[in-house]
């Protein structure tokens, strides 16, 4: 079994053992999205107009909530140091990101259509929402890995990581929400999805290196 698979499997096992963590993030996602309905009122027209943006924004915040399990838990109990010493750093980082995406984003994507329908998102918007989430959430995990590695050992790390990452998440939010809106209004949703795919390529090729650099300076 390769090192990569071993790390992913380890994190998945941990996630199953601490299934409550995933449940809490999902609960946050649903509650935060529902709050918007209370905030703007249950009028179907208004809700439908903002549904895509709400799903995207709350998904983004939920990913942020889940970042502490990416490195911080392992950092606190010292196992991160062991991993950094014993494995190739790039393999470690990519495995961690993949595991985080599987544990956080996939459950979010299962719940997202339900939340979207509750917010009266028109059916035509559902497919681009899901494709967009499929392309966009890996970017959130990749950038999230950079951010959470940077704040290891920092004071107020969990708030800090939000301030660092939210500005960087803006493009994902813009193109993710725009794809859904374009599909609803029929103005071509392919372009924003293509841009998301392009952003994913850029993030995938650069973020792991930045994460490795950040991890090294945190653990040494």
């Amino acid at each position: 079994m390769s090192v990569f698979a071993a790390i992913v499997r380890r994190d998945l096992k941990l996630a199953v053992r601490h299934a409550g963590d995933t449940a809490v993030v999902l609960a946050f996602f649903v509650i935060a999205a529902i709050l918007f309905a209370f905030g703007v009122g249950p009028e179907a027209g208004v809700l439908a107009r903002i549904a895509a943006g709400v799903v995207w924004t709350t998904a983004l915040l939920s990913v942020l909530m889940s970042l502490d399990r990416l490195f911080a838990a392992d950092f606190d109990d010292g196992s991160l140091e062991q991993l950094v010493i014993s494995t190739d750093h790039l393999v470690l980082v990519v495995a961690k990101v993949v595991a985080h995406w599987l544990v956080t984003a996939v459950p979010l994507m299962v719940v997202a259509p339900v939340v979207a329908l509750a917010l009266q998102l028109p059916n035509t918007g559902l497919a681009p929402l899901m494709i967009g989430l499929g392309l966009g959430t890996p970017i959130l995990s990749l950038l999230g890995a950079v951010g959470s590695a940077l704040v290891l050992g920092a004071r107020r790390g969990s708030v800090l990581v939000a301030v660092l990452l939210l500005p960087l998440y803006v493009p994902v939010l813009i193109f993710g929400a725009a794809a859904v809106e374009a599909a609803i209004t029929g103005t071509g949703h392919v372009l924003p999805l293509q841009v998301l795919a392009g952003l994913l390529l850029v993030a995938a090729s650069l973020c792991p290196w930045a994460t490795v650099a950040a991890l090294r300076s945190a653990v040494e």
Binding site: L143, V146, L150, V151, G153, A154, R155, R156, G157, L160, V163, L164, P167, L168, L206, C207, A210, A213, A214, S217, A218
Partner: peptide, 27 residues
């Protein structure tokens, strides 16, 4: 704001310098 907060978030200023530098390049 995030960059400045990260610079000063560590007891060891060197660690802050390195983390902030990586953030600046990502940015």
């Amino acid at each position: 704001i995030g960059y400045i907060a990260l610079l000063d978030a560590f007891d060891d200023p060197e660690r802050g310098d390195r983390a902030a530098a990586i953030l600046a390049l990502v940015g």
